[in-house]
Design a protein around this nucleic acid. Structure first.
Lengths: 194, 194
DNA sequence: GTTAGCATGTAAGGAGTTACATGATTTT
DNA sequence: AAAATCATGTAACTCCTTACATGCTAAC
């Protein structure tokens, strides 16, 4: 299997730099405000990640000499290779790569995505949730494992979990329907394909 | 801070061995069937974990010589120190330690827990979700960040997220109410306190 | 007789974290 | 003059995964 690793942080950085060049500190701020509901990243992971992306030629470095008020800092921008790499990662989206965290990051890129990519992400997430729901339902229909009391509590947890998953599926269905409605009117800006 | 790490796997093993002694293979099977909806563990993490717990004296090893049909295997049981360690971990439950994964494991221990411990876990989870909800609501009420399209999508994601969190809080409320109702009739078996 | 399941492990690596180290600038 | 915030990084560690290594037993 072409096991491309789904490094959430790398993808998030690529997505943010796709919008506009940024320096490290600002990147982390945006990671933790725009994506922060799902996950918070630290400098200890961000800076080494930038270093590695630089080494791979996916981003380029542009030192700034304290021009606008603040102190000097290093601005990163996406290179052509970085663009291609981002496209590659997006092309690899399958239900298996649509776990909770990754989906949050994919969703954050939606504004720049083409409609077909959006649909693939939504369907990928939907498929993943469907198999999860199936799993939960099979547990609910089979007799409780473990001791009596534990089984009852787990069953209640699974019942609530199944209900939540069902709701997210309905939510995705409405987004998919809306997407297919708007598919006829494509917007003008350059957009990410996958 | 007495930063007790919340090693999910260790806690899950302690919880399973609290019920009954088990060997490694069976432990993993139960981890992935009873807790598997939230997380799957591999042998590569389980066996080293058992080794370390053994070293710390929290569990003891009992080799079995292929008595009942199968081949020989190593059964682990919780020691007195292990019991105390489990109590210690449960006593450290706060909203901060009630993330999705840990909560699933705590919930799996509910059958053996005393009512006051159950209530503390439920309230811990509830408090955590409340701060999450507050965070989501503040994002929803403030003007969208990022580009127009991205902001709209993130807003929709946050809206759905807030709704899910609200539902889980209601669910917890009903469990808390039920728990307080039953609090007057304590069951006979030995139970975990925290 | 070969596939599937039972059973126990190790080595290498992944994707992050916390804590540390440093220093400038702005606000109180 | 102290505290908060801006800004960039490193070292050590955590907790888990995948892939590998081994061998036995049961079912098809």
């Amino acid at each position: 299997m072409g096991a491309r690793r789904a490094r959430v942080l790398e993808l998030a950085v690529l997505g943010l730099l796709y919008e506009t060049p940024l320096h490290g500190y600002e990147l982390r701020k945006r990671l933790n405000s725009e994506l922060g509901v799902f996950r918070a990243f630290s400098y200890g992971s961000l800076y080494p990640c930038l270093k590695e992306m630089l080494r791979q030629g996916h981003i380029s470095q542009h030192p700034e000499e304290a021009e606008y008020g603040g102190r000097s800092r290093i601005v990163y921008r996406l290179t052509e290779a970085g663009h291609e790499h981002l496209h590659g990662l997006l092309a690899d989206i399958t239900p298996a790569t649509c776990d909770d965290e990754s989906f949050g990051v994919y969703f954050a890129l939606f504004g720049h995505a083409r409609s077909d990519l959006r649909l693939r992400i939504l369907h990928g997430r939907r498929d993943r949730l469907l198999s999860r729901l199936e799993d939960l339902r099979s547990r609910l229909s089979s007799p409780a494992e473990g001791s009596r009391a534990t089984g009852d509590y787990m069953r209640e947890l699974h019942r609530h979990g199944a209900e939540s998953v069902e709701r997210e599926i309905h939510w995705l269905d409405s987004l998919i329907a809306r997407e297919q409605h708007h598919a006829a009117s494509p917007p003008p800006q350059p957009r990410l394909s996958g």
